[in-house]
């Protein structure tokens, strides 16, 4: 269990709703849900997840902290915004789902190997490093995240697409050596670190 999680448990005891309201982006909207279920029916990923947004909200109110934070449901959101458009209470459901995913990640509660999370983490690291996405390193990091053998297999499977992209000048193999960066990338990194610090403070995660 992460330290952040231990600290959160101690702080909020059984009041998971309050924890969500204070620490999850747009979490203060959760209490406004009236359990109509239109979000659940509107989500194109509906058949693939465990809990619908409306059910997640109910679980939050029922204090099912671990179940919610370890759920894969919020990781499935593709930001299509169907739920937001239809919600009769105008809950920013998409944002709450991302907020929950982010929070679960911060607490280290995401099940190991959660693919969306892994991609998101790789992507984030990649983009923070140089201030821009390096497609080459990002792709390779993804292929090899399950080890060398699997990485080679993945790369071989994707080689035609990779070559095609190179031919179309959409992918530069030279980028593997670091690639180009944005101006003042350390400034950017400091900025991000500061933003995170402010946000953590605001959310009581510091």
């Amino acid at each position: 269990m992460s330290e952040a999680n231990t600290q959160a448990l101690a702080r909020y005891k059984n009041n998971f709703l309050k924890e969500v309201e204070e620490r999850v982006e747009d979490g203060q909207w959760v209490k406004m849900c009236m359990q109509c279920g239109v979000c659940a029916g509107s989500c194109p990923f509906g058949p693939h997840w465990e809990h619908s947004p409306q059910k997640i909200f109910m679980m939050i109110r029922a204090g099912k902290r671990e179940e919610v934070l370890t759920s894969d449901s919020m990781w499935m959101c593709t930001s299509c915004y169907n739920c937001i458009v239809r919600c009769p209470r105008k809950l920013p459901i998409t944002h709450i789902m991302h907020g929950l995913a982010n929070y679960a990640n911060r607490l280290g509660l995401v099940p190991k190997g959660q693919p969306t999370r892994d991609i998101a983490v790789l992507f984030w690291k990649n983009v923070v490093k140089n201030g821009r996405v390096n497609e080459m390193t990002f792709s390779l990091a993804m292929y090899f995240r399950d080890g060398l053998g699997q990485g080679i297999k993945n790369a071989m499977a994707m080689k035609d697409i990779g070559l095609g992209l190179m031919k179309a000048k959409r992918l530069n193999p030279m980028e593997i050596f670091g690639g180009h960066t944005c101006k003042d990338k350390s400034g950017l990194q400091r900025m991000i670190a500061k933003a995170r610090e402010i946000e953590d403070k605001r959310r009581g995660l510091a």
Binding site: V38, A40, S42, K55
Partner: peptide, 24 residues
């Protein structure tokens, strides 16, 4: 059915509406 219906599609063959949603 305790549910706010999310959307209605059409069965083109017979003109029947198809209701999509979740019984909460």
């Amino acid at each position: 059915v305790k549910s706010k219906v999310a959307r209605i599609a059409l069965n083109e063959a017979n003109g029947n509406p198809i209701l999509h949603g979740v019984n909460t």
